[in-house]
């Protein structure tokens, strides 16, 4: 094992940042699952709400992308 302590910190930090992606996964799953359960209750209204579904997924996913970005920054840019 060689290398400096700063590099160690970078890698640990990048790994920790990836936990945020799990949160995004939970968020996207919640959005999609609730949409599906709602859509199965009232399939007639589901089609019109697809846009809302994607907007919700996009907002939830953006935060995961942010954490991914932080991980990338720690790995490559700091």
């Amino acid at each position: 094992m060689e290398g400096n302590i700063a590099e160690l910190g970078q890698y640990i930090g990048a790994g920790l940042a990836c936990i945020g992606m799990g949160g995004a996964g939970i968020g996207v799953g919640t959005v999609a699952g609730n949409f599906l359960s709602g859509a199965l209750r009232n399939p007639a209204a589901a089609g019109a709400q697809t846009a809302t579904l994607f907007i919700g997924i996009a907002f939830a996913e953006a935060l995961g992308i942010f954490s991914f970005l932080v991980a990338l920054l720690l790995m490559f840019a700091v």
Binding site: A58, I65, L69
Partner: peptide
């Protein structure tokens, strides 16, 4: 968020 979502 609009830009980073796409690029990310």
């Amino acid at each position: 968020s609009h830009s980073i979502r796409l690029a990310g």
